[in-house]
């Protein structure tokens, strides 16, 4: 019986950690929808957001102000990234240019964070819930912090599905990604839509940074890159560009990680995730729920 409960706890933990990954995957999806670009600075964005909040808090701003300032800053960084690393390079025949350039922006943020705040991990205060806040559900005690992440992850997925399927702006975004020329003939400002998608993606990184940092308890400049690859695994597992896929992919990854950690070794957790990435890309690159694209000549 104890064993069963242990497993349940692992699965629950996995689902919650997984919703963090799916938050990152959503961030990838938004820019992927409009430009087929995956922002290699997304992880550092997230890290930088945590760091910014920490800084604004330490200056003495209340939470709400710190969060608003952080969101504002990351939006601007998102716009800069789009202008500098994406717009001039996205039309070139190989993707190496924008991959390297977005990665460069990410590393710059990482280096900047190291310069300002040092390479060591900094303690991050609890947000809304303490790490000791638990509620018992089904006989297992669930961390409220994790539940908050889970709820936000679900909420964002719902909002994204709604926006994409029901609002004119979602339709415009889909239109721009499907055929930018046709979209502009229809009067859509394709360039602005792309810029907005990068802002939204950056904001999502901001939300993720705000929710993940309290769970980790501390943040270091290099934690962004690592977790970004995990978020990418989630996105790929669910099929690049799918909101539902991002959520399911993230949770699947989280659960597998926690089960591996619980029954085999915690040190193998991330290794397994990377192995999944390599496997899924090699065997079913369109993801578990994706549709295979037709190659055009």
């Amino acid at each position: 019986m104890i064993d069963f409960q242990f497993m349940l706890e692992l699965i629950f933990m996995g689902i919650c950690v997984g919703s963090v990954y799916s938050l990152i995957a959503h961030g990838f999806n938004i820019t992927f929808w409009t430009t087929k670009v995956v922002n290699f600075a997304h992880g550092p964005f997230l890290m930088f957001c945590s760091m910014l909040i920490l800084m604004f808090l330490s200056i003495g701003f209340p939470w709400i102000v710190a969060i608003l300032l952080e969101m504002f800053s990351i939006s601007i960084i998102g716009v800069i990234l789009e202008r500098v690393s994406v717009r001039p390079l996205v039309k070139s025949p190989t993707s190496m240019g924008w991959i390297v350039a977005t990665l460069g922006v990410g590393l710059f943020l990482q280096a900047l964070a190291t310069k300002i705040w040092g390479a060591q991990a900094l303690a991050f205060p609890a947000f809304i819930f303490e790490s000791t806040d638990y509620v018992p559900i089904l006989g297992i005690s669930m961390s409220l912090q994790y539940l908050l992440v889970l709820g936000t992850g679900l909420g964002i997925m719902l909002i994204m599905e709604l926006v994409m399927k029901k609002t004119i702006w979602g339709k415009a975004m889909k239109a721009v990604s499907f055929d930018p020329d046709l979209a502009s003939v229809m009067g859509i400002k394709s360039k602005s839509v792309v810029t907005i998608s990068f802002i939204l993606s950056a904001l999502l990184a901001g939300v993720a940074g705000l929710l993940i940092a309290p769970i980790y308890g501390n943040v270091a400049p290099d934690f962004g890159m690592n977790i970004m690859v995990l978020g990418f695994v989630a996105a790929v597992l669910g099929g690049m560009g799918s909101s539902k896929g991002a959520l399911i992919g993230g949770m699947t990854l989280g659960v597998i990680e926690k089960l591996v950690g619980g029954y085999i070794s915690t040190s193998a957790e991330h290794g397994v995730a990377f192995a999944i990435l390599i496997l899924i890309l090699a065997i079913k690159p369109e993801g578990l729920f994706g549709i295979k694209a037709v190659q055009k000549v």
Partner: peptide, 12 residues
């Protein structure tokens, strides 16, 4: 926009 409905095409 072949991946969107007739109505959405008109709406856009």
């Amino acid at each position: 926009f072949k991946d969107q409905s007739v109505h959405d095409n008109l709406l856009i």
